[in-house]
Design a protein around this nucleic acid. Structure first.
Lengths: 105, 105
DNA sequence: ACATAATACATCGTAACACGAAGTATTATG
DNA sequence: CATAATACTTCGTGTTACGATGTATTATGT
């Protein structure tokens, strides 16, 4: 999938992956991978950014001798998803514009 | 509209705007503006990039004493639109993922 | 027993990209 | 006579996805 097309989608996918249940990096990648491919470096960059933006909080849990970082969505994060859904109307109008002018095939 | 969400859409909008009829910068902005906002610097950057990629060709026409650059879509440009339509299936699957996990409201 | 895969997280450098700002120049309009 | 509209150009900047690389532990296969 085109990298540019991904850009507006990745953040919301990550937030969606932790929306109903706190999760951690490795699991998030597995959960979203059926829908969108994301490398580890991309994911951790995004998680860090969303934390700085206050859209999620982080806490550490020991699991099998290793530390695991769990991510919990905040109200700001939920708001981000809501905004995305609002913006989707504009996205669909753009898609229709592309389709409208493209009658062949 | 979120700038990141725009990124995968702008190129295709510009190509769509010249698909059925050759057009020029200023007119392209007017034609796409009901669907997506785009500054002049953005548009001309995109046009230059699409030209380098071979997705459109350029020719100059004198119009009212001024030069006007017309843009003509190539087969590669038409292919780009086609690819976008293919990718849209993935985009919609991502959108459904976001909606599915978001049952409230 | 030993190698390989899977789990889990982190950092660095890079290239692509949208945009604001500023500039140049002509033609319409009030 | 000034301002808006038309029309294109260049520069610098901040954001971002990603590959590469590194660290470390636990499972799994043979």
């Amino acid at each position: 999938m085109d990298i540019q097309l991904k850009r507006g989608l990745l953040d919301v996918c990550v937030l969606t992956a932790i929306k109903n249940e706190d999760s951690y990096g490795y699991k998030i990648i597995k959960d979203v991978s059926p829908y969108i491919e994301m490398s580890e470096s991309t994911l951790y960059t995004i998680l860090k950014r969303l934390e700085v933006l206050g859209m999620l909080t982080v806490y550490t849990v020991e699991h099998g001798g290793r530390l695991r970082k769990y991510y919990h969505i905040t109200n700001a994060g939920l708001g981000r998803i809501k905004d995305f859904k609002e913006e989707w109307k504009e996205v669909m109008s753009i898609y229709k514009f592309v389709m409208k002018e493209d009658k062949d095939e």
